[in-house]
């Protein structure tokens, strides 16, 4: 699908907690086809220290309203500025970028695992699967009950499991320690996005149980369109670009 550069209107910024917000944007023309796992490079004009665009996973898509949602963690100047843009201001996006998660076979058992703002691409992924009749199990890990985000949304798309580090909601611990992970072999595929140590730990378990595993990487990017070669990851085919060959990789192709 052709990539494009387009101005979007800020419809709404909704804070889910102190650090995370949902940025809802509206375009002026019909959206191109967007696949789950794809991302956009957002230009952040009013942040003095933000020269390059910033990459964010597409969290949700509303084709009828030409709207996109992003789930963003305010971590530095760029994301903090994005989180304070006034409604109706315009932001420029280059999208849709990157490859996508693979689609499960009909009736295949699928598990989505996310941690922190790494849950972002999993909502659209789950909705996308729902369209072809697949209802995934979804395991989301958070620090504590206060940091849980969008559980209502996720529970509409699949069977939701929550784990918190302090046990204030759901099971206690890290996603890899959750009960359903003990039976990972029951799943045909696991899709994972979150902090790299978490993805690596999930990848280990998937390898041990022989489950197909795809992860979404967040390498630092300059262009996002495959021209600068700054975002590479070592794969079985040598260095490949996270922005064009990824961001989703089957762990078999990574040297993890």
């Amino acid at each position: 699908m052709a990539k494009r550069s387009e101005d979007f209107r800020v419809v709404n910024i909704k804070y889910l907690n102190e650090l995370h917000f949902i940025l809802e944007l509206e375009g002026t023309k019909p959206l191109p086809e967007i696949k789950p796992g794809q991302f956009a490079q957002i230009r952040i004009d009013n942040s003095k220290n933000t020269f390059l665009r910033r990459p964010f996973s597409i969290h949700d898509v509303d084709y009828a309203g030409n709207r996109l949602k992003f789930l963003i963690r305010a971590i530095g100047d760029g994301t903090r500025t994005l989180g304070t843009i006034a409604e109706n201001r315009m932001v420029n996006l280059i999208y849709p970028l990157g490859n996508s998660f693979s689609l499960p076979l009909p009736r295949e058992k699928v598990l989505l695992v996310g941690g922190g703002c790494g849950i972002a691409p999993l909502l659209y992924l789950a909705k996308f699967m729902n369209r072809s009749g697949v209802v995934p199990d979804i395991l989301l890990g958070f620090r504590n009950s206060k940091s849980i985000m969008e559980s209502d949304e996720y529970s509409k798309t699949g069977r939701l499991f929550i784990i918190t580090e302090d046990g204030s909601e759901g099971e206690k611990g890290l996603v890899t320690g959750h009960t359903i992970m003990k039976d990972l072999g029951a799943y045909g595929r696991v899709f994972c996005c979150g902090p790299e140590p978490m993805m690596k730990a999930v990848a280990e378990l998937a390898k041990a149980s022989g489950t197909e595993c795809e992860v979404s990487l967040e390498n630092m990017m300059a262009c996002g369109i495959g021209v600068c070669l700054c975002c590479v990851v070592k794969s079985s085919r040598g260095n490949v670009c996270t922005c064009t060959d990824g961001p989703v990789f089957n762990i078999k192709d990574l040297q993890w």
Binding site: F51, N219, L229
Partner: peptide, 23 residues
């Protein structure tokens, strides 16, 4: 050529440093 290892880029005020290494 495989070029240099990741990370290869650092943003700087009004610019960027790259160390792609001719991949």
């Amino acid at each position: 050529r495989e070029g240099n290892p990741y990370p290869r880029m650092a943003e700087t005020p009004s610019g960027m440093l790259n160390s792609v290494g001719l991949q």
